[in-house]
Design a protein around this nucleic acid. Structure first.
Lengths: 339, 339
DNA sequence: GTGAAAGCGCTAACAT
DNA sequence: ATGTTAGCGCTTTCAC
């Protein structure tokens, strides 16, 4: 059988309390006994059991990672990269992360992820937009929480966000710098804070350059920012306003949809239409032409969220910084062109 | 505070043993008491603590998922999809999975993932090729193991594999069917069982069609199947044998590298060279031209591995099936052409 | 500086 | 059919 603290105590000729104190590196243990105990721990190849430790300390060294089904199923590795980011940090900090998905249409009857109910996590990271009903239920859990890429409407929270306004601004400014004036915006779900912020950035850029905002050039009525919606939106935009020379889509998936529409209808990118996306997913480089976009540091977002979490847990006090804005970056490729 | 089994027992007017038996749905509890207990559990919103349960049952309801650093860091979502596959199954079976990476150059001094040492997992799934030194250390752990996409040299194991020989066979046969005779093979690390199996399939296809195997057309000396290696291999192949009309690369990343080389050197795909990959990653559709490839059911592999695991754990007996071969499928796109 | 002992929240004999 | 009780492997007062 795997050795327990008792075996170590017996073999080292000390009490189990002493062994425990040695493990937690307590100061009031003399160096000789400490070394003796450490030696037998090595000999026995002893490691404390997490379950036993957890029972008494009420900690698990696990962090929960929660996102909705449809985000989980997205083919673009956006949330998976955020997840990977959390993993990078855990390796240095002795935590593990448990992934759980919740129903996109979370209802009153749905229960919280099991790890919350069974108390097998010390904190949770919530990635992406989640249903309000879920947030309500979650708020009853007194457990440290960090939100990533989504800002819950109520209260103040620990949160890691993309600098979306700036992203929208520099994307649009880039198009303006290239001489475009009739610039369309394709949004997706405008009730999503990220999307509405990017729209704010878009409008700010136009205003700063004294370009009138034309609501006909703004499409925000597709509720999910997927490829097909980009296709549909492009069709709608380009048929109703033939003066458009540039399009800013709120993510790369929709930009790919726009590209497909353009291929299908003989519109050349970037010769007829300049196109800029948002996210910078791996596929962008393989597109024809490679997509100009706004890079979002996905892995870094996960890392920052996890660092916030670990700090909260370690200090057991309120961390000073509650909101982290990760910076975005303009990546110019070949889908935009000066006119 | 969160209620414990004691609170439930007191409120329901029964012993904690009764509550425990009700929770595990034991038969020897009368329906009336059962209902009474169930009712107070609801009222108190009680959920048993995993740590406490784990301490006595020596189970955690967690499964470890282990892969090497470099597989973890791969941009192609190959192993992440396998990981997602395990998640799909856990949702139905009340398990969580803990992800851990190990050093690609695992040395004698490196220790096993913490979750193994602290016994916070009931089993482990090992994905992809892992170092022998790691396997040696791991073999000392008496814990259920399932391997995915890699076949450890020694012993018999529970393993989920791609049908690589068949994949190599149908890929090559497809090229032969399209009239190609001078078909090159780009491998990567030939010591990897998957790669050597694909080479076996390649050779089988040639033999069946009475095409002489030309070792000059086979490149297996690049040790990692990445994009750049595909580029280098294509350069080497096409400069030393200008008769080659088709290339079979052992994964899509290398195929993309081949494509880049061809673009750089003015070779048209599929007009001058037909190209077939292996894996069917998301990016394939975005390539120009879209890549013909062998589809590997990545998510399904993860699911199958997890199902195997759960079955082993549930039955506590040796599962009958020890080896699962997941099928592959030829996906014809535009990078191959009849001659 | 070290040990004894209580107890964390459960499960599983063993009684009744 | 239900209750009593002894642990599971640790941490943590509190004595000494």
């Amino acid at each position: 059988m795997t050795p327990t603290i008792k075996d170590v105590a017996k073999k080292a000729g000390v009490s189990i309390a002493t062994v425990s104190l040695v493990i937690s590196n307590h100061s009031r243990i003399s160096t000789p006994t400490k070394n003796k105990v450490l030696k037998t721990i090595k000999e026995l190849n002893y490691y404390p059991s997490r379950s036993a430790k957890g029972l008494v300390t009420k900690t698990t060294r696990n962090i929960g990672f929660i996102l909705t089904d449809d985000h989980f199923l997205r083919t673009e590795p956006f949330y998976s990269n955020i997840f990977l980011g959390t993993e990078f940090v855990t390796r240095g900090s002795d935590y593990y992360v448990l992934l759980a998905t919740i129903n996109t249409n979370f209802s009153k009857e749905d229960s919280l992820p099991r790890f919350l109910l069974e108390r097998s996590v010390d904190g949770v990271i919530i990635a992406g937009k989640v249903p309000l009903l879920f947030l309500e239920k979650l708020s009853k859990c007194k457990i440290p929480k960090v939100f990533v890429d989504y800002f819950p409407p109520s209260d103040d929270h620990y949160v890691v966000l993309i600098d979306n306004i700036k992203g929208g601004l520099i994307a649009t400014q880039h198009l303006i710098d290239y001489g475009h004036k009739e610039i369309a915006f394709i949004g997706g779900d405008i009730t999503h804070p990220s999307i509405s912020d990017r729209l704010i950035g878009y409008k700010q850029a136009l205003e700063r350059n004294s370009i009138t905002i034309n609501s006909n050039n703004i499409i925000t009525d597709e509720d999910y920012p997927a490829r097909q919606n980009g296709y549909n939106a492009a069709q709608k935009l380009l048929t109703r306003n033939s003066n458009i020379t540039a399009i800013f889509t709120c993510n790369d998936a929709m930009a790919i949809g726009v590209m497909q529409y353009c291929v299908d209808s003989g519109i050349k990118i970037p010769d007829n239409i300049s196109l800029i996306g948002f996210d910078d997913v791996e596929a962008d480089l393989l597109l024809n032409p490679p997509l100009t976009t706004i890079r979002v540091p996905k892995v870094e977002m996960g890392s920052e969220a996890m660092k916030l979490m670990v700090n909260m847990l370690r200090e057991k006090s309120v961390a000073s910084v509650k909101k982290i804005l990760v910076p975005v970056e303009l990546i110019i490729r070949n889908s935009t062109k000066k006119i």
